[in-house]
Simulated assay, not measured.
Amino acid sequence: MNSDTAPLIFDGHNDFLLHLARGKITVEDAVYGTKSGQIDFLRARKGGFGGGFFALWVPSTTKGQANGDEAMTNARYDVPLPGLVSWEDAMKVVVDEIAALRALERTGKLKICTTADDLETTFHSEKTAAVMHLEGAEAIDPDFSTLEVLYAAGLRSLGPVWSRPTIFGHGVPFRFPSTGDTGPGLTEAGKELVRQCNRLKIMLDVSHLNEKGFNDLAALTDAPIVATHSNAHVISPHARNLTDRQLAMIAESDGMVGLNFATAFLRPDGRMSPDMPIEIMLRHLDHLMEKVGEDRVGFGSDFDGAIVPQAIGDVAGLPVLRREMRTHGYDEALLTKLCHQNWFRVLRKTWNP
């Protein structure tokens, strides 16, 4: 392994499974390479991508967020969010996505990891290490029976919402400029979801929660607070980004923030445009480390779910980021923390307290 592909990166978020479950790519494409999307196993090896959180995400079934990416190229925007997704509709999609992840595992190129030891062993092997993550809890019923079933299937990380509302809480809209103080917090069912995840040692992700929901979760959880793919609001004042107050709460919990590569959440002007210097990503990293510490920052690319900087483009472009980090002055010990050690630390603490 050369310096371009080392240290290996463990990534906090991708939306690859939706493309696979929808048939946009096939398992064969994933193994042998495809020009579609931003991830396949060949490009992952070229980029030094060792694994990450593979999201189970449910597209909306009602109108809303039409032309969202186009709207987010404007100087100001407030993209309408779609309404609730039913449990029945969500479960169908999530089951299909889990089946897609299992199909990847059967190729021998990937392994679904459910313990910290298994995660680290797999990550340093020839296989891609995958953590099953539920982005938005629409597939969880109010009695939490499906939470138990999904846990048995390998679920080890969960975000109560993806921006649109659920029975558990409210997310932030795609709004710029804006704070995350955009509505009510967790419902009573949402508060119970936090308790149930704490009981099962499922990691809780605050990335899409609004400010009141973040506060509610922070007051209840007995685990580290983690934002798998979020950035610094002081640099890019987007509703999706974290304020310094929120970062202080994450630091106090000994949690974690994964830098989101989505350009709308990186750029100071909030535009979803790939034309931006990597230096802006380094500004976010510097600020995040200043506020939460160098042991609590990593990456959460949002590959296959976002427009990323043109200089990176897809998972094969990760060496560009490593080179820029070295040029910026990050030494090898810090690179290793940011690339994967910090994720392993927080997952070990969450899963094995």
Rank of each mutant, 00 (worst) to 15 (best):
S3F: 03
S3Q: 05
A6P: 02
P7N: 11
L8I: 08
F10S: 13
G12D: 14
H13W: 09
D15I: 14
D15A: 12
L17D: 14
L18G: 00
H19V: 04
V27P: 00
D29C: 10
L42D: 02
K46R: 11
G52E: 01
F54N: 00
F54K: 00
L56S: 07
K63R: 10
K63C: 09
Y77E: 12
P80K: 10
P82W: 15
G83R: 11
S86M: 13
D89Y: 14
E97R: 01
L110Q: 01
L110E: 01
K111D: 05
K111P: 02
I112R: 00
C113D: 02
T115M: 09
D118E: 06
K127G: 04
K127D: 09
K127L: 14
M132T: 01
M132D: 02
H133Y: 11
H133F: 11
A137G: 08
P142T: 00
S145L: 03
L150R: 02
R156F: 14
S157T: 09
G159L: 14
H170T: 09
G171F: 13
G171E: 11
P173Q: 15
F174N: 12
R175P: 11
T182I: 13
P184C: 01
G190A: 04
E192R: 12
L193V: 14
K201P: 00
I202M: 05
I202Y: 05
M203Q: 05
H208P: 06
L209G: 11
G213C: 15
F214G: 02
N215F: 00
D216Q: 09
I225K: 03
T228H: 04
S230F: 03
V234E: 12
T243P: 15
T243K: 05
Q246K: 04
A248N: 04
M249T: 00
I250L: 04
A251K: 06
L259W: 07
A264W: 02
G270Y: 05
R271M: 15
E279H: 08
I280L: 08
K291E: 13
V292D: 08
G298N: 05
G298R: 01
S301Y: 14
A306K: 09
I307N: 06
P309D: 08
Q310D: 06
R322G: 02
M325V: 05
H328Q: 08
W343H: 02
W343L: 06
F344G: 11
R345E: 10
